[in-house]
Nucleic acid binder design. Sequence first.
DNA 1: CCACATATGCTCAGAGTAAGCACAACTATC
DNA 2: GATAGTTGTGCTTACTCTGAGCATATGTGG
Lengths: 331, 331
Amino acid sequence: MKSAAAEPARLSGIVIELSAAIAAVTDESPKILMVRPPDTAARAGLPCGPFDPTGHRTLEEGLRTWVNEQTGLALGYVEQLYTFGNKFRDPQERAGGPRPVSVGYLALVRETEVKSSAKADWVDWYRHFPWEDWRKGAPAVLDSLISPRLLAWRDEARGPERQRRRDRIVLAFGMEGAAWDNERVLERYELLYEAGLVFEASFDSGRKVEPGLVAAQMVTGAALTKDHRRILATALGRLRAKIKYRPVIFEVMPPTFTLFQLQRAIEALAGGPLHKQNFRRLVANEGLVEPTGHMSVQTGGRPAELFRFRREVVHERPAPGVRLPVRVRKQ
Amino acid sequence: MKSAAAEPARLSGIVIELSAAIAAVTDESPKILMVRPPDTAARAGLPCGPFDPTGHRTLEEGLRTWVNEQTGLALGYVEQLYTFGNKFRDPQERAGGPRPVSVGYLALVRETEVKSSAKADWVDWYRHFPWEDWRKGAPAVLDSLISPRLLAWRDEARGPERQRRRDRIVLAFGMEGAAWDNERVLERYELLYEAGLVFEASFDSGRKVEPGLVAAQMVTGAALTKDHRRILATALGRLRAKIKYRPVIFEVMPPTFTLFQLQRAIEALAGGPLHKQNFRRLVANEGLVEPTGHMSVQTGGRPAELFRFRREVVHERPAPGVRLPVRVRKQ
DNA sequence: CCACATATGCTCAGAGTAAGCACAACTATC
DNA sequence: GATAGTTGTGCTTACTCTGAGCATATGTGG
């Protein structure tokens, strides 16, 4: 076995990169804060920077510092997602650079607090994951492009590997009658990556990408630098799970809101529609919100009551959150 | 702001340590595989080793390699937990060593596959967390020692910090009528750490530990080296959560088992009793197991049917797992 | 035979959930 | 100012799940 002690000179060839998926919801659509690339040829990416062991007391503090430097934003809610250390997910490494180990974070903010600036832009989250938005029914990409290409990729393999690929596809994409699980975002992205169906796969592996895929970026989603789309996939999956048992949704809501605005925000992140009346009953029963007494008159219909988050729920219930299943059905 | 680029010489002063909480269940008690310390003065710890960027393709591969070297075990189920980078959780660092960044993993095995050896021992998980075992009612430590000391720690603070401490204690330890949430293992450990009630706190901070606490290790749980008890707390919390929505419990079960054995294993990890009849109904309804047709005669009572895990459930249900709430009540 | 342990089947009340009906209150438009 | 369209809000109904317990089956050791 190759022991670590055998090559002490290379042992320090590690850079820990801290990256943040900073999410918000505006105008009923989920947004991510993206740092503009240095030149037009490069791909965009998340706010990120290397961990500095002398300057940063904790990893999270390092992240906050970098985000503040690059976007001017002082983060509130921050949650660690995952640490990736795969070889060659960063082309710099092949050129002799240090091995990047990437710690991904999810942050939630109200978009109004930061405007798009010269450095950073808010972009629609589903631009990078078109297949994840089921609010208006099953996304067309799935049937037209993703499914056939995945099945072709499955058929490339022989023996037990073929069965394994089949199982993974069925489970992740809810085929053959299985349900679509809106939390399996990372599993789906990884499958597309392995099948060579996302642009990043070509950069990283040197393997041939499906021909015509470069032009088809609109279809398989916009590519990002390094492994940032993977971090984004992790973030979306985690957020979709967390909404159901922690009141994190209020991190992206304004101080007061109507119940329908709240529903739209959840639908935007969860990627599917909710039953309106049941949704209201649920938030009422859970004691998640309380009326402010004021009304909103910008509804376009009957004025709606304005609510605010009841912070006390955290002390009352073990797992407060919007537990409603997002109805995601084929067709 | 102190930029990372300002001190490039120190930037590489990072070691990524990979640590594994390897869990099993034997004789109805939860076990953790612990590496024996080099000398009797040192504290025991988890199997671990530094990440080697030249030799290890991924972080997880590095972990598997180290575990295999130190325990002879080839891991099956492995899951990443969390990456810690806090300053001064390792006394080596004060002595001028590199900044340790610690990536913790949870692994599940059947204990029968590895015996305790010269290098590693199986120890009871709750030896390190006596307050987490509610199978026989509320642990005595809580009322006799932990509660009063936590309240004293709360009263040390003034102003809003005092209220914050109060809220955290109530939430984590289910005081004042709040329910005990068996998943909040890490929150509880961190509170005890901050309050100076666990042995590790003294080593790390140089701050005074509560007098008499060194001798009271039996009460506040056995200490471990570095931040390994924190990793263990993370592992227990994650495992308790995961049991409920993924069939991970079968990773620690033998190929065939009785329903009561399965129940005991879950109770061991979840730290609380289950209602027997409802438990059976649940696993039957979920289709988690199927009868083998054979019977067990070592029950001490009526012979029980032997079951095996139905691997197909993974394809049938979105979130198969043992969803039964563990009844954890005061008294 | 007994007491005792575990296994297993079943009931029943209450809570929670999915789906939809009905109506209320506003805006925009003819 | 009638009408269509939009959104908000209350309520019903059938169904499923859950917690708790009763009752019985089939072994063990005395």
